[in-house]
Nucleic acid binder design. Structure first.
Lengths: 336, 336
DNA sequence: TTGTAAGCGTTATCAA
DNA sequence: TTGATAACGCTTACAA
C-alpha cells in the first residue's frame, strides 16, 4: 500500500492540512514543522496522489497533444515546441497517437471531457474535421486545432496556408518557363491536400496555362505511390517538365522512379517538394521545398491553449501562417 | 460547470449508485431504469470524471510509454506494437517524450507513483540507468524497461543483444577479407553503444586481428559527426577498408562525406549500419544493416507490463532478443 | 501556526 | 432492484 497524506500526518504528529500546506509550499506552516514534515516525506519517498489532487483542485496541469501519425515529417519540431512552451508555463505534455484510428481518437479526445487533462492540441490529420469533435467534446473543453479544420464547430485553430504553399511551388516551376507541371498529391479529401491543389490551379491560372487533367495524380501518399506515379505519367504522350510533390514520402518515391527510368533531376525534370525533413535533406539532389514555420505553429498553438486555460478566454479565432519556398538544386533554379 | 453523476441521478430521479451501475453496465439495475438513465446520459453527453473514477477504483487503465527521443529510428514500430497490445487488453497508451531532459524524465516517471497511470514502459536512452529510477520509483510501481538497463534495481527488461549486433556487423566485414575495419559510434557511456563496441572487439579477436585505437571513433551520434568522422579518419596514414556505423544518422553523415571525398561505396569502402529505418532505406547505395526485432520488442514489453498489472506478478527478469544482419549492396557482399 | 471538516466525483458495501 | 453512506486521497475554508 502506498503512503498517503494521512500516514505522513500521523507520523509527523500533525494534521493532514498541515502536511498539505508543507508539501505545497503554502504559507501558514512554521519552518520547524515544515522541516519535520518534509524530512518524513523524503525519507519515505512520499508522492501525493495526483488523481486526488486533480479532483480537489479541478486541474491536472497536463495537456494532451493528439496526433494522427507519429511519422509525419515536421511533427517532431511542432511537438518539441509545444512541450517547451507548456513546460515554461508549468504544464506537462502527453502525446496521444491515434494512428488514424477513429476509436482511439475518440478515446483520446475524451481525456479532456473526462478531466484527465486540462486541454488538448489536435495536430493535423483527416479525422479531426468530421463529426467526432462535436460528439466527443463539451462546449467548455479547451481545444486547439493545428493544421486541420473543423467545419462543424468553431475551435481556435492555427494552420499554415497550404494554398499559398501550393501556389509558391507551382509558380516557381512555371516561372522558369516550364509549361507542363504535374502535381503528385495525397487524397484530395484531405483538406490540406486540396488546398495545395488549389494553389497549383491558381498559379496556372495566373500564367494563363491550362491544367491538364492527367497531370493531377491523386494517391494515398505512400512512397510507392510516388514511385508508381512517375511511371504512370511517363505513359502519357506528352511528358511534364516539372513535378510538384506534396509530401516527402511521395518525393522519395518519385525520385527513385526518375532515377530508375534513367532520367536526371533537374535536367530532365524539375522537382519541388513539400516540407523540410530529415528525409528531404537526404535526397539527392537537394530538394527545393515549401517550408512551413513549424516551431511557430507549435508555439502559437501551445500559447493559445494555455491562454484559454488561464483566462477562460473562449473567443475562437483562426491564425494562418505563411510558408516559404526554399530553392535548391532539384528545381533547376536559373543561374544568377 | 460540467455535469456529475449527482446531476444525472437527480434528473432521472434515482440514486447516484444506480446511475453508476447503469453506466458501468453492472448488474442490479432494471432494464427500464437503465434505459431511462442512459438516455439522459446520452442527451447531455455526460462523461464520468475519470479522476474520481481512478481514485475510487485505484486504477486508470492507462499506460505511459516514456521515451528519450521521438526521432530515434525504429521507435515508431515499437510504439505501434505497444499501443496495439495495450488496446487489445483494454489499456490506453500515452507517450511521454523526455527529450533527454532529466527533469522531464523524473516528472514522467512520477506519473506512475502519483497514480496518474497504472504502469510505464521506458524506452531506451541513456538516462534511465542512472539513479533516477531508484529515487523516482516506489517498489510497487509497475515498470518495464526496453533497450536500456538498470544497474541499481532489478526491473523487468526486454532488450536486443547489441553485442551480438556489433559482432555480426563486424564479422560480416572481416569475413570478406577486410583487414581494417573502423567503428563510428555514439557515446560509449551509453550502454547499448558500449555493447556494440564489445561485439566489434569480439569479432576482431576471433579473427586474430588487432584493433587499431584510431579506428574507434566515438561521437555524439549526430549526422555531422558521421560526416566529420570520415575526414578525421582519412587523415590517418592507413585508411580503413570498411566501416561499422552504429546509427542511421551517423551513416547518413558518413556516406555524404565519402561521396564528398569522391570515393565509392562499396568499392572503396564497405559500410554496415545499425537499424532499419526510412532513412537507411533511402540511402544510396542500399545499406547493409543490423536489424532489430522491433515489433517483438514492443509486444513483449507491453505484454510483460500488463501481466505485471493483472497478476501483481512481480518476478523480475530480463529477456534478450537477437538481431539479424540484412546484407545489401553497401557492404560489397561477395558474388555468389 | 495549526486543526477540523466539508468538499471534489466516483465506486462499493450494506440495508432496505 | 434500489438507496444511503462510507470510502478513495487530497485541498481549502474556517475555527481554534
Amino acid at each position: 500500500m502506498p503512503l498517503t497524506l494521512k500516514d505522513i500526518a500521523r507520523m509527523a504528529g500533525v494534521a493532514e492540512s498541515t502536511v498539505s500546506r508543507a508539501i505545497n509550499n503554502k504559507p501558514g506552516v512554521s519552518e520547524k514543522t515544515k522541516e519535520k514534515i518534509l524530512n518524513i516525506v523524503k525519507e519515505y519517498n512520499f508522492k501525493p496522489n495526483q488523481l486526488a489532487q486533480g479532483l480537489a483542485k479541478k486541474e491536472t496541469h497536463i495537456l494532451a497533444l493528439i496526433l494522427s501519425d507519429l511519422t509525419t515529417p515536421g511533427y517532431t519540431e511542432i511537438i518539441k515546441k509545444v512541450e517547451d512552451i507548456a513546460n515554461e508555463n508549468n504544464y506537462q505534455v502527453i502525446l496521444c497517437n491515434t494512428n488514424n484510428d477513429l476509436e482511439r481518437e475518440k478515446a483520446y479526445l475524451d481525456l479532456v471531457s473526462k478531466h484527465r487533462v486540462d486541454g488538448a492540441i489536435i495536430l493535423g490529420g483527416e479525422l479531426a474535421d468530421k463529426n467526432i469533435l462535436r460528439t466527443a467534446l463539451n462546449k467548455e473543453d479547451a481545444i486547439v486545432l493545428v493544421n486541420c479544420l473543423s467545419e462543424e464547430i468553431l475551435i481556435p485553430t492555427v494552420l499554415v496556408d497550404n494554398a499559398m504553399g501550393g501556389y509558391l511551388a507551382t509558380k516557381h516551376l512555371l516561372d522558369q518557363g516550364l509549361k507542363r507541371v504535374a502535381i503528385i498529391m495525397g487524397s484530395s479529401e484531405d483538406y490540406l491536400e486540396s488546398e495545395k491543389l488549389n494553389g497549383y490551379f491558381q498559379a496556372h491560372q495566373e500564367k494563363g496555362i491550362k491544367v491538364k487533367r492527367e497531370y493531377i495524380i491523386e494517391t494515398t501518399g505512400k512512397r510507392k505511390d510516388g514511385y508508381d506515379s512517375f511511371f504512370k505519367i511517363t505513359k502519357l504522350s506528352e511528358l511534364p517538365q516539372g513535378f510538384f510533390v506534396t509530401s516527402d514520402l511521395l518525393a522519395v518515391g518519385l525520385i527513385e522512379a526518375v532515377k530508375m527510368g534513367a532520367y536526371f533531376i533537374p535536367d530532365d525534370f524539375a522537382v519541388v517538394g513539400y516540407g523540410e525533413s530529415i528525409i528531404t535533406s537526404i535526397i539527392n539532389p537537394p530538394l527545393t521545398v515549401v517550408a512551413e514555420p513549424l516551431e511557430e505553429l507549435g508555439r502559437l498553438a501551445a500559447q493559445y491553449l494555455i491562454d484559454l486555460l488561464d483566462n477562460n478566454d473562449l473567443e475562437e479565432s483562426i491564425k494562418v501562417l505563411e510558408p516559404v519556398l526554399k530553392v535548391r538544386k532539384s528545381s533547376n533554379p536559373p543561374v544568377k
